[in-house]
Design a protein around this nucleic acid. Structure first.
Length: 438
RNA sequence: GUGACCGUAGUUCAAUCGGUAGAGCACCAGAUUGUGGAUCUGGAUGUUGCGGGUUCAAGUCCCGUCGGUCACCCCA
């Protein structure tokens, strides 16, 4: 025997996109593209392989390095498959820093890979929409990104009840820690980690974590008070010149004035990882009980291109992955049922008719802008041809046989209505168009 | 990296205490030689993920491995 066959399953944590899967992905990414381009964002792209140093240099996180696919090429260059898009954009921006007109509004839709254990909402390869504003420090950019997110969600019919957009600010957080808790810089780091975990771990674990990290009982008490306080009360505790306060107040008054505030809320516990973010941070949560998780998030970082240039470029943006988003769409029933196949017309064939007639008809339809297939096996029974047409979801089948050629006509058949009629070659296109519209 | 559960036909699943693997759907052919969703008739299909062990006998028990799912870890 020929031995064993190769496995047909895709590599762990990656997915095959069969035509129906591709339709879904194309559907939502093109919708996203529409929204983002209406905001005047420009698309960019980059290579899937980058120098390993591009990632290794960045903040030197061991864990990130463990999640990077890397290897050596034939010229002994150390390469990595991109695990995120930001270093690539940073490189691109830095490379043309003097030529680009800031602020930039850029977006990309790219596939990324990370070596990790697949689980719900997270695979080894995923596709992600990245949207950023570069070179603008003011909160107008922050506001724009947040309103863009709301519009993005709305484009899919997601209303405020389906998701939460929670917003905070790293500067504000740091100010509160310093002024209210009198926390030292190292303590702030520890506290932010504990706060980040707060919703996931038990009350006891949370308190132990803080105590074990050298946070005094007084500080813990203050922290409890902070969480019980409103945004306004917290602001009152901070100096009048607090930048964090000014940014959050400015941002929220803009959101209120434009009506976007009904989708947004202040949430002191939103922190989004570390170091990276310096100002506004935000996170979008799914509100459905089955999927109470973060869909995506982002924030402001002060220096995007420090690795490449002396000049600092501030930016704000987010990355929105397809895996979590698909879960979201499914749970909230936001995927349209009629993401149909692309073919509009199938041309049925007969053995006793010259094939060139079908080639001509097909070309005639294409010129008219009607996508079509010729049934290739002319000896196949009509039952088989029609079954095929039905399974493929062709709304219309056209018959062209000896009789029709003699009469200068075609038979067009409306599959869903199970009706058909004979129409002259001069008029069938118009009739067909009418059918395809409805 | 740690832990839990799962892996049987294309698919969804069944198989009693360990006793020689079966059903629905789907598929193919025909009833219908130029007309599809129903019905009827017939048909094909498995190294039970893989490798080893225990046993007279393993889909079933044990070990390993690969794959899937989920949680932890981590998070763009």
């Amino acid at each position: 025997m020929g031995g064993t066959f190769l496995a047909t399953n895709p590599y762990k944590g990656t997915r095959d996109f069969y035509p129906e899967d591709m339709r879904l992905r194309n559907w939502f990414f093109s919708k996203m593209r529409d929204v983002v381009e209406q905001y005047g964002y420009e698309e960019y792209g980059g290579p899937i392989l980058e120098s390993f140093d591009l990632y290794a240099a960045k903040s030197g996180q061991e864990l990130v390095n463990e999640q990077i696919y890397h290897f050596e090429d034939k010229g002994n260059r150390r390469l990595a498959i991109r695990p995120e898009m930001t270093p690539t954009v940073a490189r691109m921006v830095a490379s043309r820093i003097n030529e680009l007109a800031f602020p930039l509004r850029w977006y990309s839709i790219a596939n990324l890979m990370r070596y990790e254990r697949p689980q719900k909402g997270r695979l080894r390869e995923h596709w992600q929409l990245n949207v950023d504003v570069f070179g603008e420090e003011g909160i107008h950019a922050d506001f724009e990104i947040l309103s863009l997110i709301v519009d993005l969600m709305q484009a899919f019919g997601a209303d405020g009840g389906m998701y939460n957009l929670r917003i905070s600010n790293r500067r504000f957080f740091n100010d509160v820690m310093r002024e209210v808790l009198k926390a030292a810089p190292e303590q702030i780091h520890v506290i932010s980690k504990a706060v980040d975990k707060r919703s996931k771990i038990s009350e006891e674990e949370y308190r132990n974590w803080l105590a074990d990290s050298g946070i005094s009982p007084e500080q813990v008490a203050q922290l409890d008070k902070v969480f019980a306080s409103s945004f306004e009360e917290l602001c009152a505790c901070l100096p009048a010149d607090s930048r964090g306060v000014a940014e959050l107040q400015g941002l929220f008054s803009l959101l209120e004035e434009t009506g976007f505030n009904s989708f947004c809320e202040f949430d002191f516990s939103v922190l989004r990882g570390f170091d990276y973010y310096t100002g506004t941070v935000f996170e979008v949560f799914d509100t459905s009980p089955e999927n109470r998780r973060s869909l995506f998030g982002g924030g402001r970082y002060d220096d995007l291109i420090g690795l490449f240039s002396k000049q600092a470029v501030s930016g704000i943006g987010f990355g929105f992955g397809d895996v979590t988003f698909q879960d979201f769409l499914q749970i909230h029933n936001l995927i349209p049922a009629d993401l149909a196949a692309t073919g509009e017309v199938m041309i049925a064939t007969f053995e006793d008719t010259p094939y060139r007639e079908y080639a001509r008809l097909s070309s005639e339809l294409r010129s008219a802008g009607i996508a079509n297939n010729i049934y290739l096996d002319v000896s196949a029974k009509m039952k088989k041809q029609l079954t095929y047409a039905e399974r493929k979801g062709f709304p219309v089948v056209v018959f062209l046989g000896r009789q029709e050629i003699e009469d200068g006509a075609v038979v067009i058949k409306h599959m869903a209505r199970r009706e058909q009629e004979t129409v002259s070659r001069g008029e069938y296109l118009e009739k067909l168009r009418g059918w395809l519209k409805s």
